[in-house]
Nucleic acid binder design. Structure first.
Lengths: 245, 245
DNA sequence: CAGTGGTCTAGACCACGCT
DNA sequence: GCGTGGTCTAGACCACTGT
């Protein structure tokens, strides 16, 4: 921490912001892992030489940001990408008749190592000789193939993931467990497109069928873009839900 | 306010929540109007018989929720639906090449009073004899007709709006100014559809062209659903942007 | 300069969950 | 019962804005 009464300086940051960043760094570097409990507010305050109120403000901000979660009477924990939470936060496709909040099954079609084209290299800011992992899979909702996914991951961050025979349905939980990469923020771009030949085959739709295409760039806790994913959905009985607050 | 040390009760709410709701009610009933300044933290604290810290927590929560905005050294104000803020918050269509953050022009095609069908009545929870205003317009982006909008408003909340010859581009600002209705939250549901005959004519697209359809229900500060809107966009050079945090 | 919100501290008490 | 986070208070000082 800085001195208790910081002088005005060009790089001034509020104490609680500094505490916030320090805790985030500790999580990024793996000192505190997903699911683990943090020291109590008073312990952290003593540790960092600030008041309990300042620690509280930092912890609350991180809780707001889904980095931590708190349980009264128990403690403060590092957030974990459980399936339910991911469904709520990063999976926005819903059945039109909301009656089936069913967990979508994902079938792996193919995994391969590819040489990225110019635009994909730019997304990840990769050097010219770096490889990218491509995962091709299809999600079924209500027992019908509904969403075709093409997922791109820089090989440097996910070494040897391309050699796995099976992958879990919740990739984000998998990234977190095996590569210490927590997907924190993402940007989705939606368009309407026509089904191409592969779509027709995989999703079992006719030519001329409109699909909802979602392009996602996902960023880790440290801000790096670590995943690019294209989802093409048969939106006959589905929609993509957005809540604006 | 309640007594300073509230006993545990089934209807217990934290003080700052009560303050928050009280301020929200004042805004809803029009005591404090959009753009106006609120009393200072200390004045509010005296007024309500709570401490300044509690008022602050309520004001900060409302600021987080876009109901208020605060300017250091000046004061706390009721949020106003300015064009720029609405663009940022409630208008998520962007050019694919982000170079033109141009304000989309909206051309009014038709306004009429209609008898809602069953599903539309359900959206607004209307009695069987109530009428709904339908507004039909088209937005141009980069000088090309891109989005066709059908907007539905219960006549009870927007009396005589259907008689207006001209309507401003930013309807949400207009609702706020003329009807004291502030759009606060909204839910968008996105699908891919094929252009129908009207789409083809208005958006100048061919049959078989895929369109991005957005169905929105918008709610006012008091939680009532006050607008339903269907936007059909030619997403050839556009996309709908979602930030997931 | 006066007044506003922003930060930081210190301390009290409450509600909750576990053991 | 004990330790945790949640609420509430009181007071000090800083940073910004407009006069």
């Amino acid at each position: 921490m800085t001195v208790s009464t910081p002088k005005p300086s060009p790089t001034f940051k509020p104490l609680y912001k500094q505490v916030q960043e320090l805790i985030t760094e500790r999580i990024i570097e793996g000192s505190w892992k997903p699911g683990e409990i943090l020291p109590s507010e008073f312990q952290l305050a003593d540790l960092l030489g600030v008041s309990q109120g300042t620690v509280r403000k930092a912890l609350n901000a991180l809780t707001e940001d889904n980095v931590l979660f708190r349980r009264q009477g128990v403690g403060t924990f590092v957030s974990e990408h459980t399936l339910q939470k991911m469904m709520f936060h990063f999976f926005h496709f819903k059945s039109d008749n909301g009656d089936t909040p069913e967990l979508p099954y994902a079938q792996l079609l193919e995994t391969q190592l590819i040489t990225p084209d110019e635009s994909l290299r730019a997304v990840f800011d990769l050097a010219s000789d770096e490889k990218v992992i491509e995962i091709h899979r299809v999600r079924s909702i209500n027992n019908s193939a509904s969403i075709r996914e093409l997922i791109y991951l820089p090989h440097r961050y996910f070494a040897d993931l391309d050699k796995e025979e099976k992958l879990p349905h919740s990739l984000y939980h998998y990234y977190q467990q095996h590569f210490n990469i927590t997907i924190h923020k993402a940007t989705d771009r939606l368009k309407a497109v026509l089904a191409d030949e592969q779509d027709q085959e995989v999703l079992n739709v006719a030519a001329g069928q409109p699909l909802l295409e979602v392009g996602r760039t996902a960023r880790a806790l440290d801000g790096r873009t670590v995943e690019y994913r294209i989802s093409r959905a048969n939106s006959q009985d589905l929609h993509y839900l957005v809540e604006l607050n």
